[in-house]
Each structure stands twice: as structure tokens, then as C-alpha cells.
Design a protein around this nucleic acid. Structure first.
Lengths: 220, 220, 220, 220
DNA sequence: TATGAATGAGCGTTCATTCAT
DNA sequence: CATGAATGAACGCTCATTCAT
């Protein structure tokens, strides 16, 4: 007989102080949950594991999230926002891309930011890439779609500007560019790519996308 | 995750006929389980769901597999073998790659085979990419590692043959090539890429890897 | 993520044997639950209490009922049917009531049957009267309504036949008659009314309804 | 049902002012709890529901009652006292019953007072009749016992005075009289009996008890 | 060999109660 | 005195696994 309306977190009429505290607490809990999800896997994680990890009672978690699912939703949402932010903070407007060299730099910069983010927030990214896949498949599809759309926009600009091939299938290439950094990110998550390696890999990706792997004088 | 000793499937002492029958049965069950895992997700799938789908008793499944985990192990192993086979059945020996054009064809062919496999065996591939991620993360890492190593071999051959840039970071580029088809595969799994689309996408990938996206006269 | 359709008891295509077995099992479990609900109170009864009482696993109960609520529903439904049956098995058709004496006998008989039922099935009746009140208030209202309607029918017949006062408020009197045996039933449930006491009480009720408590020569 | 010693409300050493305030507060809380118990059912009511309804903190309730059980105890006790008062405020001493007509008036008056009370304090009465049944079965038994004993006293007086049948089973008839208004009270609680209806029903009950339902000339 | 009813450990979630502020 | 965030014991329910038939 669960007809009971969950008594909604009372819209507190006071200032935002309480709200801030609540938000801080939510973040603490979500972060802790993220760590445990990463260590044990989403399905194998009991709420008690999370509360133990945080050093709080199980009930406390339910004061801030409606359940395990809600917890994962927030983590995924947060991770997606961070990734999109990392990809977009590229100052495109600041220095418009007009040449092939700038295009390489742009791709390199984006790849570099993504790899660095994977390094800095490996737990969050690992949960997104590994755990959320099965738990929130649609969220992952949405993320890759958005990444691809943004990328396709850059490419269209390049074609228009003339520095990219006129016949470029921007949609397909955008997809390719989204996928191209994934294995490198996975290596970062496995600690197989240090600071220098990330930079080198980002540059390799930039050049590969721009000029391809073929020795120029062999290019048909 | 029982601590009790799993009663090992007795090495069956009978002839190979029985063994064949057993193998056939195992395959039937694994295939059925795969379909259900895909539909409901691994964690949400109950053994009863699988036995219902197969029209057998629950106990029967335990006569062929030690449990749900074992079932997923076999599916993952099978899927990995199929993917590796798809990537390698490229008849490299038949016609050695010696020119950039052949290189493009080779990449295009591999990408095409992977995309076609995703189309033909979408259930298997989807389970591998979506469900197995969380259930068997190491298996996925192993798969991508093997794909990368194989690819790196091809690339090394290209550098040696002279048609690929001398300074090519074969390891990084191999990783990139592994990742590059993933988004396209996901589109195939979402039915967003038909026969013709798969062929076009494969060719786009081949050309991108070989020559890059930049208009040649703008290069450098 | 409880999207899972409960796999409905498969409509078994075979004969009714299995169905009978299932029904027998359901009855066993419902009966056991009834005893425990009576002893401990519905709210204080844990599923484990019931399964312990029955000597079965907790899961077994869920093979036959969807939960604690369902269990109570069945008990209440069964109890209501029994009570209505007890009240109606009065062979009205057999010997139509035509005189005041027959009317007394009829009321006496109904009251007697209700009291005897309370004695024979005290657990069932006690659960209905005590536990179901809070758990299924509507069911109790429905029951009393039906009892009242049936009773009102008898009374209307009596008015028509002439042996009951012409100005009788049949609805109100029906209600009164429904209530009049309740305290006696409660005494039966408390073992305060033995066989003879039940018979005497039933007759007292019959006479009271028919002739009232006032000494005739004092009437009006 | 905690085994720990409930920290007894310290016998407050201060003046009676504080005591009055305390009593007022207790009453407010008990009244609020009563409303919520009625709306949601005792078992489904959380302390938070009550504190929300009252607009106070949960802890406040524990300053005035030791817990949910204690709250219900007080409500039941209060309700029982009110009902007994309603039944006894009949001014028996004022005008002793000596005739059948007075007897009818007396019964009618008592029934009327009970029905009016159910109308005026429907929440309290509904909680007593519906919720307390399962929560405090003994309290209900005690109440009906007391009502029956009081009633039996009146009847004994009537027999002695001669206006009631000499052979009247006063105990059984007292029980019957206690039960006879119950269905009508339930109708009042369900809003199925307005002011006039209650008066008419009370009179019907009075006459029924006194003279029965049988048309006098058909008697015997 | 195949079955599926039975099992019970395990987990998500709730909520009465406490206590620091 | 009042509060309400925190707690964690308790319980309903699920489902992987077993085993008698």
C-alpha cells in the first residue's frame, strides 16, 4: 500500500543557506557513491556499501536521493555535463579556426582536454563509460550524439572555410572523431598514459584526423 | 558469488556424439540468454526469464552452465572470438598491402566487415558492447587490446613498406583506428545505418585514416 | 527499476489437477496466515512469522500470493463469503414465513448460525472483525451493507404479509438486526458463550426483535 | 516495543500553569494525530505525517508522548470516556423511568446522543471504531463491556419496576442494545444519516427494543 | 535427462526514535 | 523548549540455486 506521497523536501522558505548545505551534502554522497560504484560495479553495490564508505547511516542517503537509481542518474548527468563542458570550453569564438594548422590545434586541444579530464576525474569517467553503459544506455547514446553534433558543426565550418575537403562526409567524420579518443581515454583510465603520453596522443590524433596516416608523396 | 565449491561439470567420459549434443544445447541456451540479456539487461534478467524464453525448465540451464555468470562468460567469449575473426579474415596474406590505395581498401574492408557483423549479429554485439561492459570490463579491455595490437602490426608493415609516414606513432594510431568505428557500430546497432550507409561509412573511415580531412592544397 | 511484469502463473494447459493442487496450497497458506494474523495482529505479522508457522520458506508464500496485502484480501473475501452463506442458508424458500412465530424462528435460526459460525471458525471471524477493520474498512462496510439489504428484504416480506407492523422502517430495523448479534459474536470469540449460551442468546434475540422487551400489558 | 526504559515524563515539579500548558499541548497533538490516523490509517501513519499536519518538529511529539503507541492509547482512552459520558448523561436520576413510554424515551435518548456524538466527533469515533480495533482490541472489549453492564443495570431496574418482561435475559438484551446502534453509527460516520435521519433512527431503535417488530394483534 | 516448486540469503527501502543545536 | 537531520534496525520482497520427482 505505497500510496504515500513522499513528503517532498519541503520548499524551504528561508534563504539559500539550507539549500546550499543540501546541495553540498548531495554532492558528497554522489561522489562517494561514484567511488563505490567504480570499485564494486553498480549492480554489486549495496546501499550499505555506500553508507559505510561515507561513514553515515543508510537512511541518510535516502534523505538526499530517492534510491540507488536516482544516485546513478545524478552521477551520469553530472559526468555528461562535465564531458560536454570539457569538449566545448575550446574558445572557438576567441580564435576562429581558419587554417589547417589551427584545425589540428583545435582537435589536439579537445582531445587533450578529454584525456586530461579522464586523468583528473578517472572515477567519474570510468563509472560513466563502464557502469552507466548497462545502467543508462540511453544516456550514453545521448552523450555521443551531442558530441557528434557539436563536432559536425566544427567540420561544416571547416568545409565552408575551405581548409577541409569539399566532399567530406561531416556526419560520418564527426562520429569517427568522437570514437577516436575513446581507446586512449580507456588507457588513461587504466593508468597507461601519463601526462606526456596524453599530450603526445592528443597531437597524434590531431594530425591523423587532419592529414591522415599516409606518407604524402604516396597519396595516390 | 557462492563460496561453496561449484560442482564442476563432470568431464563427460562418453563418446563425442554426446559431446556434440551437449555443445549444441549449450549454444542454444547461450543464444537464448543473449537475446534476453539484450532485451532486459544483464542485471535485470532472471534465470526464469531465460528458461521461459527457451521454453525449458530453469534447472535445465544449470545442467549446461554453472550459473548466470558462466552464461555471460560464454557469450562474451563467443562475441570476442567473432569480432576478432571478422577483423582478421582480411586475406592479408592473399594480397599484401603495398600502396596507399591498397591500405585504404584494407581499412575500408575491415571497417565494413565490423559494421556488417554488427548488423547481422546485432544482439550479440549489443550485449558485448552494452551489457558486458559492466559485467566483464576486463574482457572488453582484452578485446580492444588485441584489436589494437593486430592493427599496430598492419601499421608497422605500412611504415616499413614506406607508404605510411615514417614518424607514425603506430600504437596511438592503432588505438585511434580501433575507436574510430565504434560510434558507427553503435549507429548500426540502433538501426541508423543501412546497407549502403555502412559501405559509405567504411569508405569514409578508410579515406580519413589514410589521407585525413584536410584539403590537400591547404596541408602545411 | 521494477518494470518487470510478474511472470503470471502460467495458464497451465493441462488438466485441473495442478490447479487443484495450487488451490489447496493457497488455502493452506491463507489459513496459516489467518491464524498468525489473529495471534499477532496484521500489522505486527511479518511474512517470516507466517512462513515459520507453516514450516515453509518465505518465498513459497510469494508463489501463491503477491504479498501480505493479497493474503489479507483473500482471507477477508473468504470470511465475507462464509458469513453471507451462513446468513442465507436459511431455507427461506422451503418454509415461507407467514406468522410471527415463524418470524421469531427465522431470526433465531440466523442468529444461531452466525454465533455457531463464530464458534467454529473463531479465528477467521476474529480476523475479519478485528484485523480487517483497519486493513480493509471498505470490505467490512460492504459486508454489513449486504447483510442489511438481505435482512431488509425479509422484513419487507413480513410487512407485506401483515405480521410485521405496517409502519416499520425496514432499513433502520435491518441495520439494527445486523448490529444486534455483534456483541454476542464478540463474546463467542472471547469464549464467553458456550453451546447452550449461543442457543439461548439466539432465541433472546429472536424474541426481542419480534416482541420487544416490554411487558405486554404495559405496552402503550 | 523498544526494550530500553522509556524515559518517563518527569513529574513536573513546577506550578500548575506549566501543567495546564502541557495538557493543552498534549491535547493539540493528540487531536492532530487523531485526524491523521483517521485519514491514513494507524499503521500507515508516520510520526512525520503527524508533525507535518501539526506544523511542528517530529521531536516535539516525543516531548509530550513516549511514542506512536502512547498517542493511540490516549486517543482511545479519550474516545472511550466521551462515549461512556454520552451514554450516561441521561439524567436517569432526574426522572426515574417507571413506564414503558419512559423506557422508550430513555433508549431513544441514549441512541440519539450516541448518533449525534458520532456526527459531531466523527473523526474520533471513526478512529476508535476502525483503527483502534486492531491496535487496541482490549480497549474496545472493555468499552463494550462497560456499555453492556450499564445497560444491564437499566434493564434490571425495568424488570424490577415491572414494565419489562419478568423473564428478560438482561445480560443478553444489554449486549443486543449495545450492538443495535453500531450499524447506524457507521452510517453516520459515512455521512449517510443526517440530523433528521439520526432522530428517526434513534426512535426506531427505541420502539424496536421496547415493542418489537411484530404487529401486536399477531403476537403469539 | 529435464523439470519447476521450494528455498532462504540478501538487499532496497522505510520510519520510529534520538540528540546536537 | 523545539527542532529536524541523522540513524540503523527491521521487514517485504526477489531470485539464483537446488533437488525430489
Amino acid at each position: 500500500m505505497r500510496t504515500t506521497e513522499k513528503p517532498r523536501k519541503s520548499a524551504n522558505g528561508a534563504g539559500s543557506t539550507d539549500d546550499d548545505l543540501t546541495q553540498r551534502r548531495r554532492k558528497e554522497i554522489a561522489d562517494g557513491a561514484c567511488v563505490v560504484f567504480d570499485q564494486r560495479g553498480y549492480a554489486n553495490t549495496r546501499i550499505a556499501d555506500i553508507s559505510d564508505h561515507l561513514g553515515v547511516g543508510q537512511g541518510t542517503i535516502y534523505r538526499y536521493f530517492t534510491g540507488k537509481e536516482d544516485l546513478m542518474d545524478h552521477i551520469v548527468g553530472h559526468a555528461v555535463r562535465r564531458i560536454l563542458a570539457a569538449m566545448r570550453e575550446d574558445g572557438v569564438g576567441d580564435s576562429p579556426v581558419r587554417t589547417a594548422a589551427q584545425f589540428v590545434d583545435q582537435i589536439t586541444a579537445v582531445a587533450h582536454r578529454l584525456l586530461d579530464m579522464a586523468a583528473r576525474e578517472s572515477v567519474l569517467v570510468r563509472v560513466l563509460l563502464v557502469q552507466a553503459q548497462a545502467a543508462r544506455p540511453d544516456a550514453i547514446d545521448d552523450l555521443t550524439d551531442q558530441l557528434a553534433v557539436t563536432t559536425a558543426g566544427y567540420l561544416a565550418n571547416g568545409v565552408e572555410s575551405g581548409y577541409l575537403r569539399e566532399d567530406l562526409d561531416t556526419a560520418a567524420v564527426a562520429d569517427a572523431m568522437v570514437g577516436i579518443t575513446m581507446p586512449a581515454m580507456r588507457r588513461v583510465l587504466r593508468d597507461q598514459l601519463d601526462d606526456a603520453g596524453r599530450e603526445a596522443t592528443a597531437r597524434t590524433i590531431g594530425r591523423l584526423i587532419a592529414y591522415g596516416a599516409v606518407e604524402p608523396e604516396f597519396a595516390s
